[in-house]
Design a protein around this nucleic acid. Structure first.
Lengths: 193, 193
DNA sequence: CGTTCTATGTAGCAGTCGCTACATCATGGT
DNA sequence: ACCATGATGTAGCGACTGCTACATAGAACG
């Protein structure tokens, strides 16, 4: 009885691993159960149905992502610096599973399917808050609009990278400083460090 | 014998209708066949397998999208005007089925699955070319980087709208002119204040 | 006329999907 | 000692998946 919630949490964490590695299409009950070392029968013993099970799992994934993002980029920076910085963060290997899942969520949310729409929406809000908190801004009134614009652009680079067009991302960011706000712009990064 | 290619084309167009209305998840053989008034048996008579069938269908969808986009926005405009203009175009009703499909494609492409990766990549290139052609730019060298940045931001707004966050899109575009490049910026158009 | 080729129907295969009915076993409270 | 409860296995259902084997009708062609 008391172990029940604990067991649920164990399962959720293991399912989160699985969902992150194979995504939603590979997350039917039997593979999920196998990844937990149990049976589909038991998953539906601990969870009412697949929807509840997936909601819990995606919640856990979201929590991990939040933690991962909070750990990265502790500093604050103005728009022109923050944008390429976040884009590079999103291109890093540890983010890949999350972003693949994120796109699957977005596609399902686009068809207004629950629970995906709600979960994706919350994740989006979290993203925006995280971005806004890291944005250095002259007037407070600019913070949310600027963070929104920044978030949109970052999301766009995620899509472009997903379809194998890193070149477009690079060209887009070429419009902006590499890292520190450098005034003149030779595309070659400085060799010293 | 010769009617074969014509028949294939008929089927492709009808399947394109169906895919646009229900997306890839609802596009298994039997529903697709029903939408064409035929049987799964016949689809696989005209196409080698589901992959070939889907590739052809998505190609037709891409052609329609290209036509639709070329018809819209004949004019040329600078970055700050073109961005909100394209974003508004993407928010228009006729674009919705295409963008839902686009996100599904992006999600599959993100997992490097063929033929989706290739098709999505080509669509992305088309988008970029289309954007670049409509961008008014001071120096030709800026065209591609600027169009890339614009495209990324537009794609981002598509994602944000997909997850039901039109508010974020609005905030982001609030950073930019509504249509004509007007210098001062009271958010309420034209009226007194 | 007879044959051959194209188009189509009917049936079904082996697999997966989410989900459930039923049986069993162990444990712990009374 | 008995029984209730919780945990788990086994088996299966009905629907769906992509795909195929077989049969057949009709048209084309010799």
């Amino acid at each position: 009885m008391k172990g029940r919630d604990a067991r649920r949490q164990e399962l959720v964490e293991q399912m989160a691993d699985h969902v992150l590695s194979v995504g939603l299409p590979g997350s039917s009950l039997r593979p999920l159960a196998a990844a937990c070392g149990t049976s589909d029968r038991m998953l539906l013993y601990y969870f009412a149905d697949k929807n509840e099970l997936l909601s819990a799992t995606l919640g856990a994934v979201a929590a991990r992502l939040t933690q991962l993002l909070d750990a990265a980029l502790p500093g604050v920076a103005p728009y022109a610096v923050l944008l390429p910085r976040i884009c590079r963060l999103m291109a890093a290997a540890p983010m890949k599973p999350y972003l693949q899942l994120w796109l699957e969520l977005a596609a399902l949310a686009s068809r207004r399917q629950e629970p995906y729409l709600t979960i994706a929406g919350q994740l989006g809000d979290g993203f925006l808050a995280w971005t806004a908190a890291r944005l250095e801004v002259l007037h407070e009134a600019e913070r949310l609009p600027t963070a929104s614009l920044l978030l949109a652009t970052v999301e766009g680079t995620v899509v472009l990278r997903a379809i194998g067009r890193e070149s477009i991302v690079a060209a887009a960011l070429g419009q902006l400083p590499d890292d520190e706000p450098s005034p003149a712009r030779p595309r070659r990064p400085r060799k010293s460090r």
